[in-house]
């Protein structure tokens, strides 16, 4: 790059050395050699001073200048961030720790995996426990087989039809007062009198009640008289002769 201008402006110094053409070229080389601390270099001032210069920039020179300034900006940015390309691809130390732990855990667990394989082989060889496992108390409880005749007798007993279950509680006894009245009349006609206790001997409470109602009915009709000398004692039913015309 060639540059020319006033002597007072350092950027306009007619600097021409064997290896450098102009101050910006030299500056970039010094920066790359780290002889100038790029982080402390005011790039904005450098750009403004360059653009305010009196020279007319032709396109090739302008492109070269822009490329040079961009290189400086990139170098300064990397220096300020404090990382270079190698650091960008450095592995995450935390992730590495986790991975190393995983490897260590796998290596530490491997013996138990192998021990498990050994146990599996023992299990396979044994086919589980190779002796009888029936507990002695259960074995002792098992009875000896019975003789055929004992078994047949037992089966015959099982084949006998069981007695029919009683349905008595489901059948209501039907008692007709008229029938009892007719029966009572016949008894009175034959004997002239009957005892209530004898008449109801062996019958249930319902039949006794119905018989009492029949006696009261005959007394109501005047066909019989009732006598009970003792409270709660026997009742005697007497036939009434004169008015006994109900037949």
């Amino acid at each position: 790059m060639s540059a020319s201008g006033r002597v007072a402006d350092p950027l306009r110094l007619p600097l021409e050395l064997d290896l450098f053409e102009g101050p910006l070229d030299l500056l970039l080389t010094l920066v790359l050699r780290e002889e100038i601390e790029l982080a402390e270099l005011p790039l904005r001032d450098l750009v403004e001073a360059t653009l305010r210069g009196p020279d007319e920039w032709d396109p090739p020179t302008t492109g070269e200048l822009v490329l040079l300034l961009c290189s400086l900006v990139e170098l300064k940015a990397r220096r300020l961030v404090g990382e270079d390309d190698e650091d960008d691809y450095a592995p995450d130390p935390d992730a590495e720790l986790v991975r190393e732990r995983l490897a260590a855990q796998l290596i530490a667990f491997a013996p138990f995996q192998r021990a498990g394989m050994w146990l599996s082989m023992q299990d396979g060889i044994d086919g589980a426990v190779r002796y009888r496992r029936v507990p002695l108390d259960r074995a002792a409880a098992l009875q000896a087989p019975h003789a055929p005749n004992e078994l047949s007798e037992a089966i015959i007993r099982l084949m006998v039809a069981p007695p029919m279950p009683s349905m008595g509680h489901m059948n209501r006894e039907r008692i007709n007062v008229g029938e009892i009245v007719a029966e009572l009349r016949g008894a009175l006609r034959r004997t002239g009198r009957v005892s209530f206790d004898e008449l109801t001997d062996g019958t249930d409470r319902l039949a006794q009640g119905m018989t009492l109602m029949a006696c009261l009915e005959l007394a109501r009709r005047g066909e019989a008289n009732l006598a009970q000398p003792v409270p709660f004692g026997d009742i005697t039913v007497h036939r009434v002769q004169p008015g006994f015309a109900g037949e």
Binding site: F112, A115, L119
Partner: peptide, 15 residues
């Protein structure tokens, strides 16, 4: 029968 996971766990406990 015991699964491989059960066998491995059994080995860990046994040792």
């Amino acid at each position: 029968r015991l699964s491989p996971a059960a066998i491995e766990t059994l080995a860990v406990i046994a040792y």
